[in-house]
């Protein structure tokens, strides 16, 4: 499949990435190369095989719905670039 410039821009937008002009061309070439190789999955003898989503048997793992207190709230908040009154601070979202 051929990857167009528009597609790269669309994908970058979905991934919340902003690409510089020279990056667009570079990633377009890279993606094309990798996909050309990855296309061999379409030749694999997988007719009738189920999909596998994990390394081990897929089963539900339930736990009790109990509240556990995380003590180190300061430690969590300290990693945020800006914080105020025990909350993450971000620019205004609604005008």
């Amino acid at each position: 499949m051929k990857v167009s410039k528009e597609e790269i821009l669309h994908i970058a937008n979905l991934a919340q990435l902003e690409l510089k002009e020279e990056e667009i061309e570079k990633y377009q070439t890279n993606l094309q190369e990798i996909l050309n190789f990855a296309n061999i999955v379409n030749n694999a003898p997988v007719e009738g095989l189920d999909i596998t989503i994990g390394a081990n048997e897929a089963k539900n793992v339930f736990r009790k719905d109990e509240v556990k207190i995380f003590e180190n709230i300061e430690g969590l908040l300290e990693n945020a670039p800006t914080q105020e009154q025990h909350m993450f601070k971000i620019p205004k979202v609604i005008n």
Binding site: N42, V46, I51, T52, I53
Partner: peptide, 8 residues
């Protein structure tokens, strides 16, 4: 397709 190959 890749997930099927994983089964393979």
């Amino acid at each position: 397709k890749a997930q099927q190959v994983r089964t393979l």
